[in-house]
Design a protein around this nucleic acid. Structure first.
Length: 382
DNA sequence: GTAGGGTTAG
């Protein structure tokens, strides 16, 4: 009875976890990454927060808050973040800025604002750092347009001067709300205030424009960046690549890859995946295979979830079951994440071609995935 | 410790 033994093992593991209450910050963190029960997570998170070093581990905070948010457990997000007020770090602005951002990432702007307003009572100084965190929270909560006062009136009211970071957040806000003209106007505004747009400012704009299919405006900003003597980095180029590949300008995209290299910049997985996506959109399985091989052989990167998510559906569509099957094995060999629907497509294609043994194998790989147990359907064999 | 890419495990 495999089902029963699994339940038994899980129960024993839980008992063991409770018995060996993690007292070191990193043990506490790794417990929280693994724990699946939200009530236990919240409880354990609050206890762990008492450990000084635990509170420096932003990764666990991000992870736990994100998981709670995707389960809609916003009360519990507030519960664990509000609990942080009981520790001395709450007097440190950087720590509070982190909390403000955490609220903002999941649409909880009102909580972010409340915490910002409470900072004086918490004996925590407010500078441009926490103001920027609040601005970021309003952008991430998509409340940017409603919150113009955050960058117009609030700085003056508190005697805080905006800095370059602030302007980059404001530019992002206008991009997110689709207002390219105001985003551009903000470049002039920031220069007037003595802050030069940097590569982050330009990348924010380029990413928005090329992704939203506005290549002419993208190229305009690119020229502006060159005029200002700001050197593009790999992220600038990968935005430009998206602009080319989404318009199926594959020849230019490949040339751009060479240009990147000639500048001494290493194209990263984002670049290669966008190239592969372009070829996949054209249904060109041969080119997709070529670039997949290129990643494996000539770069330091491993194909990732995004790569497989593009290639497997195409391989299935083209009826190349061998390739799809090989890719599925690669996923588990690399221990990488994959969307269940993608994997299901591979199973379906194998079944369609009556390759039941391989279909079953992929199904089992899905079930034993180290990150997640996928329940994949494969018709029972007679 | 606040700013830029595509996802993210209930």
């Amino acid at each position: 009875m495999p089902g029963f033994s699994r339940i038994l093992r899980r129960t024993l593991a839980t008992v063991a976890a409770e018995a060996t209450f993690p007292t070191s910050p990193s043990a506490a963190a790794s417990y929280l990454y693994k724990e699946r029960n939200f009530n236990r997570i919240v409880d354990q998170f609050k206890k762990s927060s008492a450990l000084d070093h635990f509170r420096t581990k932003n990764g666990v905070y991000e992870n736990v808050v994100r998981r709670l948010a995707s389960a809609g457990r916003f009360d519990q997000i507030h519960e664990i973040l509000d609990h942080q007020k009981g520790f001395r770090d709450i007097k440190k602005e950087g720590f509070v800025a982190r909390l403000i951002c955490l609220y903002g990432k999941h649409g909880m702007f009102d909580y972010a604002r409340k915490l910002f307003d409470e900072m004086p009572q918490l004996e925590c100084d407010r500078t441009v750092v926490s103001l920027n965190a609040l601005l970021t929270a309003s952008v991430n909560s998509k409340k940017f347009n409603e919150n113009e006062a955050l960058y117009t009136e609030l700085p003056e009211k508190l005697g805080i001067k905006l800095d370059g970071v602030s302007y980059n957040v404001i530019v992002k806000g206008f991009c997110e709300s689709g207002d390219f003209e105001r985003a551009l106007a903000m470049l002039n505004e920031m220069e007037k205030m003595g802050f030069s747009p940097n590569v982050i400012t330009f990348n924010t704009l380029l990413n928005f424009l090329y992704r939203k299919n506005r290549p002419e405006d993208g190229d305009r900003v690119w020229r502006m960046m060159e005029e200002k003597g700001v050197a593009p980095d790999v992220r600038s180029y990968s935005s430009k690549l998206v602009g080319l590949t989404s318009r199926k300008k594959m020849k230019e995209a490949v040339e751009l890859i060479d240009e990147i290299k000639s500048k001494g910049i290493k194209p990263d997985l984002f670049c290669y995946n966008s190239l592969i996506k372009g070829y996949a959109n054209e249904g060109d399985l041969d080119e997709v295979k070529t670039w997949h091989k290129h990643i494996v052989k000539n770069t330091e990167y491993d194909p990732d979830k995004a790569t497989f998510g593009i290639i497997i559906p195409l391989a299935c569509e083209k009826g190349d079951a061998d390739y799809a099957y090989q890719l599925c094995k690669d996923i588990f060999h690399l221990g990488c994440l994959i969307d269940p629907p993608t994997l299901q497509k591979a199973v379906d294609e194998l079944v369609k071609q009556s390759r039941m043994k391989e279909a079953e194998e992929v199904r089992l790989l899905g079930r034993n995935n180290k990150y997640f147990r996928y329940i994949l359907q494969v018709p029972a064999t007679e």
